[in-house]
Amino acid sequence: MSAPGVIAVTGPGSFIGRRLVDRLLERSPKLRVLALDQRRPFRLDSRVRFHRVDFTEPTADGHCAEILVRERAEAVVHTAFRTSPTPDLEMDHELETIGSLHIMNACAAAKVKRLVVASSTMLYGPRPDNPNFLTEANPLRGHPDAHSVEDRVEMEGLLSDWRQRHPDSEVTVLRPCWIMGPTYWDHVTRFFSLPVVPMLLGYDPLMQFVHEEDCLHAFERATLSPHPGVFNVVARGVLPLSTILRLAGKRILPLPASLLYRMAYYPSQGQTGDPPAGFYDYLRYLWVADGERGWEAFGEPAYTTKEAWISFVSARRMRRYR
């Protein structure tokens, strides 16, 4: 199968889902795009056929399969994930792991030819014993304190089982790293927008970002042309954390890990439902991914890590001065 005629996007309320729907409609007007979500997102394009599905319901797989068969969907893009983790751990698990399982089963029942799943390089986990560049073959070790990451590691495990049971469907897993850009907003960009950014004293790991446009481009290419397999979606280049913060002119507050993890305990529990290590360990150890495979498949990214960061920072600045 080359280019599908009917594409179903799950989770058009998430950043990638929403922007991918717009992009597909804009670039390929002949496409028919379905959207499946719990509630109709704000300002959904009128050409999109919206179906209301609650992925966390036990019967969601049957319901989804019915819709996919009725609409003759040929490709499914699964982006119904939390952009930022929420303190509702159970609901996150139901949505990200069980919801994905429902989508996979629905795809199998509806004999969908192509399934594109949004994952993340955060799933490799920040570890002191990571190699400098993590390839797609590295095990997904996750982080025990980050529930969203753990849920998605479980989801990828289910997905690889599913792929073995259904060898005739093309499965593409895209793992973007932290996304930066003028319109992207999640718990990471919120952290980097703090007036004073805390850092771990004595640690200055290399960071890697991907620009939102490059990320969406990869999703679009994966949807429209066959690219079975797993791909890291990252920008070229790495920069130390302190350098990117200095580029943005941020005030840095270096704190010892033990102190920071105690101080940030309650705010972190309130915002993400995790102990602080689930986020701050990503600013402590290395988890840079090797994007060579993705660049070969989807083309050279337009923005480097530094340019993606500058694009985010300058957009923030313009907004404040408006």
């Binding site: 002191p128 014993d129 771990l200 004293l201 004595g202 640690y203 290399l206 130390p240 890990a257 150890y285």
Partner: peptide, 14 residues
């Protein structure tokens, strides 16, 4: 490993 992630040494070593 332990040296490359040792606090204060890590930023300089890299």
């Amino acid at each position: 490993d332990w040296l490359i992630t040792l606090p204060f040494v890590q930023p300089y070593l890299a």
